[in-house]
C-alpha cells in the first residue's frame, strides 16, 4: 500500500513501475526485471490502473475489452470472458453503449475490468476507490481479494488508509518523493499521510 499526501509521488512511482515513465536516476525492478532494460517483459507481467481510464470513448465497454484481449493475443480471452469480467464489475448491462456516456464511477469500473482481464502478476492500482460509491467500494474490495487469490501482487496507492490496512500486508508512506515510513500495514498510524 502506498500512502501519502497529494504530490508525494505515489502516481509517479506506480507509473515508473508500470514502465509508463522512464526514470531519470536510479533503477527499478519488478518481479526481478529491470523496468528499463527488460521493459517489454515487465509490461507483459504488470497492469496499471491509472487516473485516466485508458479507454476509447467512441467504443463500447465490450469493444474496449475485446481490443485489449486481441492485443494480448491470447485466444482464451474471448468475448465470453470479456462479458464475464464486465459482469464482475457490474457493467454487464452497459456493455454495448459508448463509453462517452459513462459516469466517472463507471469508467473506473471499466478500468478495473481491464486489469482483471489481463490477470497480471503485479497489479499497480492508483486510487482504485476514487470516484466510486459505497457499492463501488465493495466491488474494489472484491477485486482486490480476487487478485490476491489469483496470486497477483497488488501495489495500491490510496487515501483510504483503513481499507488499505485491511487488504495490504505492507505499507509505505511517501512524502515529497521520498519514503517516510515503511513497515507492516497493520502498524500504520491512522493519520499517516494526512498530517505532515
Amino acid at each position: 500500500m502506498l500512502a501519502g499526501r497529494n504530490g508525494s509521488g505515489k502516481s509517479t512511482l506506480l507509473r515508473v513501475l508500470a514502465t509508463a515513465l522512464r526514470p531519470d536516476l536510479g533503477t527499478a525492478r519488478v518481479a526481478g526485471l529491470d523496468v528499463v532494460h527488460d521493459r517489454d517483459e515487465v509490461r507483459s507481467r504488470v497492469a496499471l490502473l491509472d487516473h485516466k481510464s485508458q479507454v476509447y470513448d467512441v467504443f463500447s465497454a465490450l469493444e474496449n475489452l475485446e481490443l485489449v484481449a486481441r492485443f494480448l493475443g491470447d485466444p482464451k480471452r474471448d468475448r465470453a470472458r470479456c462479458m464475464a469480467v464486465l459482469e464482475e464489475v457490474g457493467l454487464a448491462d452497459r456493455a454495448r453503449g459508448p463509453v462517452a456516456e459513462f459516469s466517472a464511477g463507471m469508467r473506473k469500473r471499466l478500468a478495473l475490468a481491464r486489469v482483471l482481464l489481463k490477470a497480471p502478476d503485479v497489479a499497480l492500482l492508483d486510487e482504485p476507490y476514487g470516484e466510486l460509491d459505497p457499492p463501488g467500494f465493495r466491488l474494489v474490495d472484491g477485486v482486490l481479494d480476487r487478485l490476491r487469490r489469483q496470486g497477483s501482487t497488488v501495489v495500491m496507492a490510496t487515501h483510504l488508509v483503513d481499507r488499505g490496512r485491511e487488504h495490504c500486508d505492507r505499507a509505505l508512506v511517501l512524502a515529497a518523493g521520498g519514503v517516510e515510513w515503511d513497515g507492516a500495514a497493520r502498524q500504520l498510524p491512522a493519520d499517516a499521510g494526512i498530517v505532515a
Binding site: 531519470d24 536516476l25 512524502a175 515529497a176 518523493g177 521520498g178 519514503v179 517516510e180
Partner: peptide, 9 residues
Amino acid sequence: QLQPPPEAA
C-alpha cells in the same frame, strides 16, 4: 532544469 528533487527530511 534537471536538478534532482531535494532529499526527503
